[in-house]
Design a protein around this nucleic acid. Structure first.
Lengths: 121, 121
DNA sequence: GAAACTACTTACCTCTTGGAAACTAATCGG
DNA sequence: CCGATTAGTTTCCAAGAGGTAAGTAGTTTC
């Protein structure tokens, strides 16, 4: 008799894995969490503000990532009728549902820093 | 007088952003969350089990990602002295501190699915 | 009229990610 | 000895992520 070695994880778990894949597809890339994190702190911000605040990002990347986020309704884009035209970006109500993830990510990163720091002392 | 347009986000926020970057560097790539999620469900699993359970991953990728995770002490590797040699992987106690992130990610992904489903109806 | 600021876009190029497939090496069953 | 199973490694390759730099276009300021 052949060894079966099937674990057959429950459907619930399969859904979990699918859910994780969905989330990560939407939030993939080097900059999305940074942009969202910054926007959540700063409220509504203009393009140039973000370019200055999100350290190291290039205009091209910022533009592309903002488009992605807008497409997924996580961020809203508002063109203001000011002297030199300005555009305001804001995290949508829906985007704010990501706050728990971002907070957990930030918490873990802080704890990681502390752990590494302690170990290297 | 030149316009200053400096937001000067607080140091607290800078740390937050740095923390997010740290987390994402360790957890980057297409498969880390999947592997961790699967291992958290399955307890200790062997290489071939993971290869079967983590849908779509290739041996090369699984091997590389497991090495990364082991290096960061998120997963432990134990060689067992069995007839055909087997290797068990397990999430470490430290790795388990990632559970909140993974849970939030899964929750959000489920909610996202539901939202899309409702909108497309 | 030149320079500067707004918000981008475009072109080009490089480096990394990740997939497919084949190969290694040890051991066991028949 | 052959084939299967274990846990990988190696090689080759394609696609995409992301960086640099320059260009576009409208408006305001000097």
């Amino acid at each position: 008799m052949r060894k079966q070695a099937k674990l057959n994880i429950t459907p619930v778990c399969k859904n979990r894995i699918t859910a994780i894949r969905d989330s990560m597809e939407i939030l993939s890339g080097k900059w999305k969490f940074h942009i969202l994190g910054t926007l959540m702190e700063g409220g509504s911000m203009r393009f140039m503000d973000l370019l200055r605040e999100v350290e190291g990002i290039a205009a091209k990347m910022l533009s592309k990532e903002l488009q992605d986020l807008e497409m997924n309704q996580l961020v809203s884009r508002t063109v203001l009728d000011t002297k030199p035209i300005t555009v305001e970006y804001e995290v949508t109500e829906y985007g704010k549902t990501l706050k728990p993830i971002i907070d957990e990510l930030a918490n873990w990163g802080v704890a990681y820093r502390n752990a590494v720091f302690r170990n290297q002392k």
